[in-house]
Amino acid sequence: MFGRYLAKRLPYMMLVLFGISLLIFFLARVMPGDPARLALGPEATQEQVQALRHRLGLDQPLYTQYYVFVKGLLKGELGMSLVTKRDVSKDLIQRLPATLELVAVAMTIAILGGIPLGMLSALHKDRTIDQLSRVFAFAGVSFPRFWIGIMFQIGIAYTLGLLPITGRISGDPPAHMTGLYLLDSVLTRDLAAFMDSFKHMVLPAVTLSLSPLAQITRLIRASMIEELRKDYTIVSRTIGMPENLNIYKYMLKNAFTATLTVIGLLVGWLIGNAFIVEQVFSWPGMARYGVNSVLRNDFNAVVGVTLVIGVGYVFINFIVDLLYGYLDPRIRLKK
């Protein structure tokens, strides 16, 4: 059964991946605007522009360009960055862990904060704590990320001096294993590096997590209120099952399943907003590289970042889908 579900999802995923490559190629090559001219700036001569167009293969027919583009992709080649003059794939591999770490920590904060907060609100529906979490939820989704990040920098980092203002680490990074500083410093038992990178992580991760945290809180609250009305809760309450068992065993499991449905969306949201948060906190990740590539008209780099994110996002959704199908057999049977 599960295998059949997998066999159905896989071709669909391939189709979406193919579509992403087409969409990005379309954006990169067909839209008005000449990447070579953009990269060289208005002072470049027509000959210089032509030469770069030729080197980038932009003077070839579109289908040839697409063929070359996809052939490169399958080999993991994303072309050369026009700014760093290095392979875009090398640039990305170097910066990817920083972004992954940031997004993962933010997601963890959102889940570990949102689930208890949502449950608390549901159990105390319409009371003070519920009202407070409601206000927090509205604020959480309405804050401009860049602005709340700056406010944290002014208040907590600068005025109170509690945490560093920008960057990922002040001292030496831990010995390279995964590139995730927190994990690497744990693996190498480097306490100094751990504390250092942890302090740097707090503000960017919290800034990034506020909106997903708010969304998970509301979602869990709604789903818990629904569950509390259901027969099994009422029955187990009447037959005198301990209330804590009800909440923790049954409701928590439902809460996790409910969260899983939005994880895919939230991951996409986090990656998108990492572009803003990394910029505010000078976080040396892939998203910041992406923004700078856009600002400097570094075409291959922009395409590379988008592709990596698109493909990664598709895979994450695929895994979430599988996990969800595994947890909730009804989904598997329906499709």
């Binding site: 969409l23 990005i24 839209m31 998108g272 803003i276 988008t306 698109g310 996002y313």
Partner: peptide, 11 residues
């Protein structure tokens, strides 16, 4: 399948 803000950046 591409996060909106990322797609907007490419555009």
């Amino acid at each position: 399948s591409i996060p909106p803000l990322v797609l907007a950046l490419v555009v």
